[in-house]
């Protein structure tokens, strides 16, 4: 008995070591599978506060660049708006058409402005923390965009903060299409360079060329159709040779994110339940 006690006293730290390592690994694996782990991320209350303060300080120094970017984007949109107005006025001679266009554009999605308070680029899986949470109506699986393009998808939410899966994350997979035709593929990030992502599963017979614009397809109800994603930078074949693999220069500059918009489709819940029940019935 005394020997046993001595043994435990002498080598007890082994047990403590194993216990702590097991706890670490439980955390590591739990985070990837369960949605309930907000407390262990930067979207919990205390960390959110600290990051909010630090983001305020650093965003002050980025105001200049952000401003120029916004002005430029504003100008582009103004020109586009003018053009569309002209086309619309040529085509519609009656008020009814105008009303339909006006009602269908802005009512399907609600928009929540938010500030990005934490962001990373250099890990294999990057996350973004935002300063809006369930209290402001943010729910998991809403889309995050900024003035230049799409940013990510909300993953976890606490009361006042939320955590989004960045585009720069191995788990991110977004349905995208070409702006000038409807061929689509899936956008994935393969690590290392924060400026480029890859568009997979683009069919062999798709028509496109280098420099073509890629936008969201709107199939998933996370993002509305037609949001800017990036441009085709180089063209290659996929590993199995059945489709194209396109390198996309992303429109969003992830190295200087500051303000963002959280987008939610009004009918998102309905589409989601419909798709899930369809999946379940086909499995049976």
């Amino acid at each position: 008995m005394r020997n046993l006690l001595n043994f435990v006293l002498k080598y007890g730290y082994w047990f403590l070591f194993l216990l702590l390592e097991i706890a670490s690994f439980l955390l590591l694996f739990r985070f990837n599978h369960y949605q309930g782990s907000v407390g262990f991320t930067s979207s919990n209350r205390v960390m959110g506060r600290i990051y909010a303060v630090s983001a305020e300080v650093s965003s002050f120094f980025q105001l200049n660049t952000a401003n120029t970017q916004l002005t430029q984007r504003n100008l582009e949109l103004q020109v586009e708006n003018q053009l569309l107005r002209k086309v619309l006025s040529q085509r519609s001679n009656n008020d009814a058409f105008d009303r339909i266009v006006a009602s269908s554009t802005d009512k399907d999605y609600t928009i929540i402005p938010a500030t990005i308070i934490n962001n990373s680029l250099n890990r294999p899986d990057n996350y973004i923390t935002l300063d809006k949470g369930t209290a402001d109506g943010v729910m998991p699986e809403m889309g995050v965009v900024n003035g230049n393009g799409i940013v990510g998808i909300i993953y976890l939410t606490s009361e006042h903060y939320s955590l989004a899966i960045s585009l720069l994350n191995s788990k991110s997979c977004i349905s995208c299409k070409f702006k000038n035709n409807d061929y689509f593929g899936y956008l994935k990030w393969k690590g290392l360079d924060s400026r480029f992502a890859y568009l997979e599963d683009v069919p062999r017979h798709a028509l496109f060329q280098k420099g073509d614009t890629i936008v969201t397809s709107g199939y998933s109800a996370v993002f509305p159709k037609g949001l800017m994603v990036g441009r085709v930078d180089s063209i290659a074949d996929s590993k199995d040779g059945l489709s194209y693999l396109l390198r996309i220069q992303l429109a969003t500059d992830f190295a200087c994110l500051d303000d963002a918009l959280i987008i939610s489709g009004k009918n998102r819940q309905e589409q989601h339940t419909l798709e899930q029940s369809a999946n379940q019935s086909t499995k049976k």
Binding site: L20, E21, S24, F25, L28, R30, T129
Partner: peptide, 14 residues
């Protein structure tokens, strides 16, 4: 907790 990698730094530092 700060860098959204639960368990990774904890395991390495232990």
């Amino acid at each position: 907790i700060f860098s959204n990698t639960p368990g990774v730094n904890a395991a390495a530092t232990t």
